[in-house]
């Protein structure tokens, strides 16, 4: 089975984000980066598919040199090969990412391309479906359970208030959601083996961007709460504010 898993590097979820002076990106000073947690699910699912069906797992990332860290983490979990599609610029949108990934992936004719359903930095949720469109193959995203038997794909996906069972066929693009599996800890053996796995670097094929970030702002500081101290005399005022100001009733 030819398995591809696309990975991205994101700021650690505990990072306190600051906006840079240009207001178009974050200030990277003091930020530590991790493999996107949803991509970690995708890597685990890729490894499970390989263990069940044989074949190999290639981890691909589009980005700058820094993105090699995401591929290295995939190596440490057990991925076999790694490819960095090198962007000339650190500014790229979801289309640029998708177009580059699809251009590279298409001639490889993989059976399955796995993604995390989103990356936790920009939260675009666009790349898996764009790549599938560009490849001309189906996509199922927000998948919490995946079964592939004899080329038939059965996926369980989260929908508002419930679950949906979807069937399709290979080749396919899958977007992994929390719950699909429990990612393994990289063990010492794979950490040691990862050292000797080379990352293939190739040039980007597209750099156009179809969207542009014009400004970034932090969310407004949380307003302080209101405390009512007069017991039942305050009830009507409380109800009024809940209805008119908080708009929750």
């Amino acid at each position: 089975m030819k398995i591809i898993v696309c990975v991205s590097l994101v700021p650690d979820s505990t990072t306190k984000v600051k906006i840079s002076d240009s207001k178009k990106s974050i200030d990277e000073n003091g930020v530590s980066y991790i493999l996107n947690p949803y991509d970690e699910l995708a890597v685990e699912e890729a490894l499970k598919l390989k263990e069940k069906n044989g074949g190999d797992v290639t981890a691909i990332s589009f980005g700058t040199d820094k993105s090699k860290e995401a591929i290295k983490k995939a190596f440490q979990m057990g991925a076999d090969k790694g490819v960095l599609i090198k962007s000339g610029s650190p500014d790229f949108d979801s289309y640029t990412v998708s177009k580059n990934l699809a251009d590279f992936i298409k001639p490889l004719n993989p059976d399955i391309v796995l993604f995390g359903k989103q990356s936790i930095d920009f939260d675009g949720l666009l790349v898996p479906s764009m790549v599938s469109e560009l490849l001309g193959i189906p996509c199922i995203s927000v998948v919490v359970k995946l079964d592939i038997t004899d080329g038939k794909v059965t996926a369980e996906r989260e929908v508002e208030g419930g679950k949906e069972i979807v069937e399709s066929t290979l080749p396919i693009v899958i977007g992994a959601q929390k719950g699909i599996n429990d990612p393994r800890y990289p063990n010492l053996k794979s950490i040691m083996a990862a050292k000797s796995k080379p990352i293939e670097e190739i040039a980007a094929t597209y750099s156009g961007n179809k969207t542009e970030i014009t400004e970034m702002n932090l969310p407004p500081a949380k307003a302080s709460g209101k405390i009512f101290v007069n017991g039942k005399d305050d009830v009507s005022e409380l109800v009024r504010l809940l209805r008119e100001e908080a708009k929750v009733i």
Partner: peptide, 8 residues
């Protein structure tokens, strides 16, 4: 998912 990053 792993809680990477919570303890430094």
């Amino acid at each position: 998912m792993q809680t990477v990053g919570t303890y430094k």
